[in-house]
């Protein structure tokens, strides 16, 4: 082949118009699809509704009639949500590595931060929608439960409180997401979340009980503690500041480190 022929061919081929950049909305739609299109993904999503119904049923069956109010339903449903949402968020990231789909994903979209960003958007969306669905199922349970027992239907969760609970669960979900990005391993991320969310609080509680200096410091350094205020229904300016500071240290910084690792690492 002569140099002229090569020259000619390359110009002929690059003449094809450059395609447009993949829009972010499309990436989000694809990531949303990917969270439903496997059997495990589908059932993980379905489990949100299933667990909310189970928790509602259990409250109707087991809670004393006098305590059958909306708060009882909300807290009963809240617990499984706090477990399952972070797992969904973590797996949305780690599956790219554990299932090795990242090889395809990151060759179709070489800017990995865009993929992670789309996953983050999908996670937050799923978190908010799940919480609203859960709240609706709880409300249905409240109406149904009190109708069965013949007691008055009590709506003792204000819109503000409901909003705080949604914020708290989305924050928990983001912690799962952060661990997924940071660890890029499904098992490690899930174990990490349980250690962080369920094993650490009793320990910090114990520490705060016995060491006065930690008790004074705790609201500003303990992310779990700062989130706890969201469930108490009252958030002062100080509480918000504490939540912001602890989120920055325990969520935003590790997420930034994880993102940096994701961008630089090899996708095997």
């Amino acid at each position: 082949m002569t140099a002229i022929a090569v020259e000619h061919e390359t110009t002929a081929r690059t003449a094809r118009p450059a395609p447009a950049r993949i829009p972010t909305t499309r990436l989000i739609a694809v990531e949303l699809r990917k969270s439903f299109d496997t059997r495990s993904g589908f059932w993980l999503m379905a489990s949100i509704g299933i667990l909310a119904v189970v928790a509602t049923g259990a409250t109707i069956l087991f809670a004393p009639d006098s305590e059958l109010d909306y708060e009882a339903f909300a807290s009963a449903i809240g617990f499984p949500m706090a477990v399952i949402l972070p797992i969904i968020a973590a797996l949305s990231v780690t599956s790219e590595w554990s299932q090795r789909t990242g090889l395809t994903t990151f060759t179709l979209v070489p800017h990995r931060s865009r993929v992670i960003g789309a996953k983050l958007a999908v996670s937050i969306g799923i978190g908010v929608v799940s919480m609203l669905v859960a709240a609706a199922i709880g409300a249905l349970g409240n109406v149904l439960g009190t109708a069965i027992t013949g007691t008055d239907t009590v709506w003792n969760v204000s819109a503000a409180e409901l909003f705080y609970i949604v914020v708290a669960n989305v924050l928990g979900m983001l912690v799962g997401f952060m661990l997924g990005v940071l660890l890029r391993n499904s098992a490690a991320a899930i174990v990490g979340y349980f250690v962080y969310g369920f094993a650490l609080p009793p320990l910090t509680f114990l520490l705060a009980e016995n060491q006065q200096w930690f008790k004074d410091l705790q609201p500003w350094v303990d992310f779990n503690f700062a989130q706890g205020n969201l469930f108490n229904g009252v958030m002062t300016g100080d509480n918000w500041a504490q939540l912001a500071v602890t989120s920055l240290v325990w969520l935003v910084l590790p997420l930034a480190v994880g993102l940096r690792l994701v961008l630089r690492s090899e996708v095997k």
Partner: peptide, 18 residues
């Protein structure tokens, strides 16, 4: 290097959508 739980068609569909 594909998600073992996706169907072949779904894998192509995800790429086609992307």
């Amino acid at each position: 290097a594909q998600h073992a739980g996706r169907t072949g068609r779904e894998i192509l569909t995800v790429a086609q959508r992307t």
